[in-house]
Write a protein that binds this DNA or RNA. Structure first.
Length: 203
DNA sequence: TAGTTGCG
DNA sequence: GGGC
């Protein structure tokens, strides 16, 4: 049905200790590039999820649209570099020759969500999208390349990795809800999702 | 128009 | 979780 080729779930890809070290890396990174609240193009409605990025490019949304840009929209500073453990994850799971340029960092507090969407603001759809989950569990939904295709839902746990490549690269996906109290990784709860992407076709 | 990373 |  919607067994899209190129969809891969790696449960427990990061063990607990690696998750803790990554959270430490992120703590430092977030001082340089704090979470901000993006808004929807044209309507200006805020996302419930807060965002920041690392890498040479970051995904942003504002009244003008969705795009990748080299600087934080509020501080104007370049995004910090992508932590090594994430580059290693890309190498291990992505199976792609070029390194990731963008790592979108989403923070889902309890009660936040992300509607069904496609990742299609990149030039390079041959590259996979690699995603890691930290903290509370998410009810994740994925369908096909058309919005009306049937969807299925799965639970993403802290340390799980997800790869969207091949046919699944342009699959609609989203987060229905966060289940509070399902992880002790983040002291204040919530979920962090890290999404690695190749943006350009060039070097 | 078609589409909507949101809303209901 | 479907549909606008």
């Amino acid at each position: 049905m919607n067994n899209l080729e190129g969809f891969k779930l790696a449960p427990g890809f990061l063990e607990r200790r690696a998750q803790e070290q990554l959270v430490e890396d992120l703590r430092a990174l977030l001082k340089e590039a704090p979470f901000y609240t993006p808004v929807m193009p044209r309507s200006g409605k805020p996302f419930s999820v807060r965002m920041t990025n690392c890498g040479t490019l970051g995904w942003v949304s504002d009244r003008d649209g969705y795009r990748y840009q080299p600087t934080h929209p509020e501080t104007g500073r370049p995004w910090p570099p992508i932590p090594q453990v994430l580059l290693a994850a890309w190498g291990e799971l992505g199976g792609y020759s070029k390194p990731p340029e963008a790592c979108l960092i989403n923070f889902y507090a309890s009660g936040t969500r992300m509607g069904l969407h496609q990742d299609r603001d990149e030039e390079d759809f041959a590259a996979p999208v690699v995603s890691l989950s930290l903290g509370d569990e998410a009810v994740f939904r994925i369908g096909g390349q058309s919005r009306k295709d049937p969807t299925r839902s799965l639970r993403l746990k802290s340390g799980d990795a997800l790869v969207l490549g091949g046919e699944a690269r342009l699959a609609f996906h989203g987060v229905d809800r966060i289940i509070a109290g399902t992880s002790t990784l983040l002291p204040k709860g919530g979920r962090i999702n890290l999404t690695l992407r190749r943006v350009t076709k060039g070097e």
